[in-house]
């Protein structure tokens, strides 16, 4: 099957990843998949206020996902929406397994993800960027987290859906994965598919996450090893 933008079924969009893009932040990254662009900035570990939020034996990880008003066809109203609040939550849980929070008791680590250009797959682009930004900030991690969305159009399993494909797909399944520990840290799906399809799609997502992981590592190497 030829896809809408001419890609093969298991072909990712052109990817750009860059670490260290915001001078003020402790760590940052820019990630672009086709026409989806995300910037992530990490601040911390730093002292956490108000004090009652502090956790005695580990750092508190906070994530905020937000879309720029000009990122989509119809202007996004600034400020948190129900969608962005849910994505912020699942993003936190996608990243948390990778971070040694216990190294920084009572502190806060804040991850801000801004989507500046949206053409589907924004939460996964955001997770890819956030993971590079955390490593860029020098925060000890078990692994990088790589993420991609997969779907099914007609009888074809496809990866990294673009906006037009998102409208046609039988299901949309974003997956985040830590290749070293083999753990799935984000798994969501909406659609109507068989158990067999669901399993096949997760396997496909894992395979593509392993590719994305290599690009993430390259971005970090380029920043820190020249």
């Amino acid at each position: 099957m030829k896809r809408i933008d001419g890609r093969k079924e298991d072909e990712l969009r052109p990817i750009v990843m860059k670490a260290g893009v915001i001078e003020q932040a402790d760590g940052s990254a820019f990630v672009k998949f086709g026409n989806t662009s995300a910037i992530a900035a990490v601040y911390g570990p730093r002292s956490l206020h108000p004090k009652h939020l502090q956790i005695p034996d580990k750092a508190l990880l906070r994530t905020v996902y937000s879309m720029a008003p000009f990122s989509t066809t119809e202007r996004v109203k600034p400020g948190p929406s129900r969608r962005s609040i849910e994505i912020s939550k699942v993003t936190r849980y996608a990243l948390e397994p990778a971070v040694f929070l216990e190294e920084f008791p009572k502190t806060g680590i804040e991850v801000y993800i801004d989507i500046i250009e949206a053409d589907a797959g924004t939460r996964t682009a955001g997770i890819n960027a956030a993971s590079i930004a955390l490593a860029d900030a020098g925060i000890p991690m078990r692994d990088l987290v790589a993420a991609v969305a997969v779907g099914k159009i007609n009888n074809n399993y496809i990866v990294d859906l673009c906006g037009k494909e998102e409208e046609q797909t039988l299901c949309d399944m974003p997956v985040a994965y830590m290749p070293r520990t083999k753990q799935i840290t984000l798994l969501q799906m909406d659609g109507d598919i068989t158990l067999d399809d669901a399993t096949k799609l997760i396997k496909l997502a894992i395979k593509k996450c392993e590719e994305i992981y290599e690009i993430q590592k390259q971005a970090l190497k380029k920043r820190w090893m020249g």
Partner: peptide
């Protein structure tokens, strides 16, 4: 009919593929 319509993972840890299946 046994089809899956929605999935949501939550919580600060990960799951192996075998565990998900």
């Amino acid at each position: 009919d046994g089809n899956v319509c929605a999935i949501q993972k939550s919580g600060p840890d990960g799951l192996l593929l075998e565990e998900v299946e």
